[in-house]
Design a binder for these strands. Sequence first.
DNA 1: TTTTCATCTGCAAATCGTTTCCTAACCACA
DNA 2: TGTGGTTAGGAAACGATTTGCAGATGAAAA
Lengths: 152, 152
Amino acid sequence: MNNQKQIVDALRKRGNKVTPQRLVTIEVLMTFREQHFSVEELFQGVKQRNPDVGMSTIYRTVQILEEMGFITKRNFDDGFARYELCELDEKHWHHHLICLKCGKVIEMQDDFLEVLEKEIEEKKEFIIINHELKVYGYCSDCYGITKGEQFD
Amino acid sequence: MNNQKQIVDALRKRGNKVTPQRLVTIEVLMTFREQHFSVEELFQGVKQRNPDVGMSTIYRTVQILEEMGFITKRNFDDGFARYELCELDEKHWHHHLICLKCGKVIEMQDDFLEVLEKEIEEKKEFIIINHELKVYGYCSDCYGITKGEQFD
DNA sequence: TTTTCATCTGCAAATCGTTTCCTAACCACA
DNA sequence: TGTGGTTAGGAAACGATTTGCAGATGAAAA
């Protein structure tokens, strides 16, 4: 679980400056724990606390934080990049169940894929760093609604 | 395994017109079997056979073919949408191993996830239509090269 | 502290893949 | 063959993200 101080220290260690704009950005970031936020959403949150921060500053900060590994880019095909905080104690990334009807994203923790990973590393001569599983379908809410309709 | 005739018939059945431009596009599509092609690449192939076809026509055709389920959109974070032909006899989509160094995409057929799917459908009350697994890491070529380097 | 300088910032402009507008051309069913 | 809705091409619009620039500012050294 990363905290603000940890990120700030890492920034300095990397030779980056810790500016008020970045501090606010990191602050807001912390309130987005467990969420998939877009740069625009982050920008809105930052602007509430400091209206003078520019959009490109947010983009640049997000880029740095991703390089540093504090956030990860996700793509849910909704038109813009989304990010989420990386939790340090997370051994493997969680999976996402994405509803094709309402777009809801349900998270799911599961180490089930470890067996598959071993298989891949052996069979394919591939060193695995990370993986991402997206499961598309219909959530319980939408299944009720669409019952009887044709899904495809 | 879809063939050209199958797509053409489906187009007409859907109320779409079968134009020379679309015929060429589908022809080129067939040569891209097993590949992850971008719209730009498809456009280049089409232009070789008919230089007068416009880019927007390709975009529109691709959109229709995706709606019809003949091709699927993929995202490999290289800046543009990529597509691949859907093989009808494929029960479940294959997975992709993506090399973080050279960007190579290795395909992998595996029904391993069926067990996981059952688990998800029960535990999460979620009707699964499809899934997508991306595994990031280093391919055998790049592992040799990067040996000794720090991966992250 | 003051100096120093590479890093940052905000803004506007540029990018670039993709979509949309518009009008003429065209496919397909009767 | 006629008729009408679909399609084509080209240019312009879009929209998220990136970049160029000139001045401001952290922070390490003096």
